[in-house]
Simulated assay, not measured.
Amino acid sequence: MSKDKTPHERLWEMIKDIRFGMLTHRHPEGGLHAHPLTTQGKALGEKGVLYFFVSRATEVGQRLRTDGNVNVSYSDPHKDVYVSITGRAVVSEDMDAKQRLFNPMAKAWFPGGPTDPDLELVEVHITHAEYWDVKESKPTQLFKMAAAAISGERPKLGEHKEVAV
């Protein structure tokens, strides 16, 4: 991690350009279910909160009200960046946050704007995050994996960190 960046800044740097996060929550019968959602906002902030807009017409908000334990995963295979975030989700009616986060892309789903009665704001308060960031080029990765296969030692590729938030 860069010495001049906080864990929140480093996490945001890794996920900000990834279009969708997969939000996984628990169904009442215990099974896990994931939804692709667009992360809203321009920074993670010091409190470590991710924001998503969801439709009241779906079960997502109701399920999160019942059990807010979630995981949000992000991946960018082209950059070899993988992030897994654990947190507590709450459905918020914070109109200031809805107005601050609302954007032209959200209008496609919620034509009534931030006051659209179908719009629910989900806040994921991050408790833990883990990431893998492979900086080596593909040829270097292949060389290191081949060398590891010959030597019997695990290849050392990129950066793997856990972040308690």
Rank of each mutant, 00 (worst) to 15 (best):
T6Q: 08
T6W: 10
H8T: 10
E9H: 13
D17Y: 07
D17T: 11
G21D: 02
T24M: 01
T24F: 00
H25R: 13
R26G: 06
H27R: 13
E29N: 12
H35P: 05
P36F: 07
T39S: 00
T39H: 04
Q40N: 06
Q40A: 14
L44Q: 07
L50H: 09
L50W: 00
Y51P: 09
F53I: 00
R56T: 00
A57T: 03
T58P: 03
E59L: 11
R65N: 11
T66D: 10
D67E: 00
G68M: 00
G68I: 08
S73Q: 05
Y74E: 03
D76C: 12
D76E: 12
K79C: 06
S84A: 14
G87S: 00
D94P: 04
D96E: 14
A97L: 10
N103C: 10
G113Y: 02
P117G: 01
P117V: 06
P117D: 09
D118A: 04
L119D: 08
H125I: 11
H125R: 12
E130V: 13
V134F: 11
K135H: 14
K138A: 12
K138M: 01
T140F: 09
L142S: 11
M145T: 00
A149E: 14
S151E: 04
P155L: 02
L157F: 01
E159S: 07
E162T: 15
V163Q: 15
